[in-house]
C-alpha cells in the first residue's frame, strides 16, 4: 500500500514509533489509543476519526492510486435514496425541486430486465472513466482526470459549452442553470458551468470516504465499497477478484472506475 493508503483498509502509522525512550512511551501509548480510535470502524467504510490516510496538502495526487467504487446491486434498496440525499447535502446541491434543471450528481435508477422482468435499483453517477469522453471533448481542458483517476471540472476554465454533457454516455453531468447561494466552501459551484460527481474529492483528500458511501453504510445497506483499485490488498480489489462485477456500457471500453456487482 502506498503512503496515502486505502481508506477501505486499516492504517496504523503510529506503530512505527516504537523505538523511542521511556519518556516517549506514554505519548506513544496515547498515540496508539488515538490511532485505534481513528481506525475504529462504525460500519464498513465509515470511521469515527479519519486522519491516518489523509494526504498532505502539498503532496500531489498520485497515479499509483486509482480510486474506485464497487456497488453491490443486490444490497442496494429500491426506494432508498440516502446516497442521493447525502451527496446533495455534502456538495451543497440542495433538494431536487426541479428535476429537469437541478443538478443531480448521483441518482437512483430502477432497472427492469426485458427478458426476465428482474427488477433492480442502483445509483448512477460519474463513472470516473480511465478514458473519459468528457475530457476528450472539452475544448478548454476544464474537464480533466486527476492522477488518481478522479474526473473533475475546473470551474475556472469551464465555459459552459456543455459538449461534455453531449459526450457522457452515463448522463452524469449537470449544468448549473441558475444562480446559487448557500454553497459549501469546499465545493464551489457557479451558474453557467458544468459539474458532476467529484467522488467527494475534498473528503478523499482528507482521508474520508465519499458521502454517498458513508450514507449507504450508515443506512446499514453497505452496498457501496470505496477504495484503491490499484492496491491488490484493498478491500475493493479483493472483492473484485472474488466476485463477478461489471461496468455500465462495457461495450464502450471506457474503463470506468465504478463497477457493479450483481447486475
Amino acid at each position: 500500500m502506498n503512503e496515502r493508503g486505502d481508506i477501505g483498509n486499516n492504517d496504523n502509522r503510529g506503530n512505527n514509533a516504537r523505538d523511542g525512550n521511556n519518556g516517549r512511551r506514554g505519548f506513544i501509548a496515547a498515540a496508539a489509543t488515538l490511532t485505534t480510535l481513528a481506525t475504529l470502524t462504525l460500519a464498513p467504510g465509515i470511521r469515527l476519526i479519519q486522519i491516518a490516510a489523509a494526504r498532505p496538502e502539498e503532496e500531489a495526487a498520485s497515479a499509483a492510486v486509482r480510486w474506485g467504487l464497487l456497488i453491490d446491486v443486490t444490497r442496494c434498496q429500491t426506494g432508498c435514496e440516502d446516497c442521493v440525499a447525502a451527496c446533495g447535502k455534502e456538495n451543497g446541491l440542495g433538494e431536487v425541486a426541479r428535476p429537469r434543471t437541478d443538478a443531480q450528481w448521483i441518482r437512483k435508477i430502477d432497472l427492469k430486465e426485458h427478458a426476465t422482468g428482474r427488477a433492480l435499483s442502483l445509483p448512477m453517477m460519474c463513472q470516473h472513466c480511465a478514458h473519459p469522453p468528457c475530457v476528450d471533448v472539452c475544448p478548454t481542458g476544464a474537464s480533466f482526470k486527476r492522477a488518481d483517476g478522479i474526473v473533475l471540472v475546473d470551474r475556472h476554465i469551464c465555459i459552459g459549452c456543455r459538449y461534455c454533457m453531449m459526450a457522457c454516455p452515463y448522463k452524469a453531468r449537470s449544468f448549473v442553470h441558475e444562480p446559487h447561494t448557500d454553497q459549501n466552501p469546499e465545493v464551489p459551484r457557479g451558474q453557467g458551468c458544468v459539474e458532476g460527481c467529484t467522488l467527494c474529492v475534498h473528503r478523499i483528500d482528507r482521508g474520508e470516504t465519499p458521502a454517498c458511501v458513508a450514507a449507504c453504510a450508515a443506512a446499514g445497506h453497505a452496498a457501496m465499497l470505496f477504495g484503491d483499485l490499484n492496491d491488490p490488498a484493498s478491500a475493493i480489489s479483493q472483492r473484485i477478484r472474488e466476485v463477478r462485477t461489471t461496468v455500465a456500457r462495457a461495450d464502450l471500453a471506457l474503463d470506468p472506475g465504478v463497477r457493479y456487482e450483481g447486475l
Partner: peptide, 10 residues
C-alpha cells in the same frame, strides 16, 4: 444506459 433493461429515474 443498460442495454437489455428498461430504466427509469428522477
Amino acid at each position: 444506459l443498460f442495454p437489455g433493461h428498461a430504466v427509469s429515474s428522477r
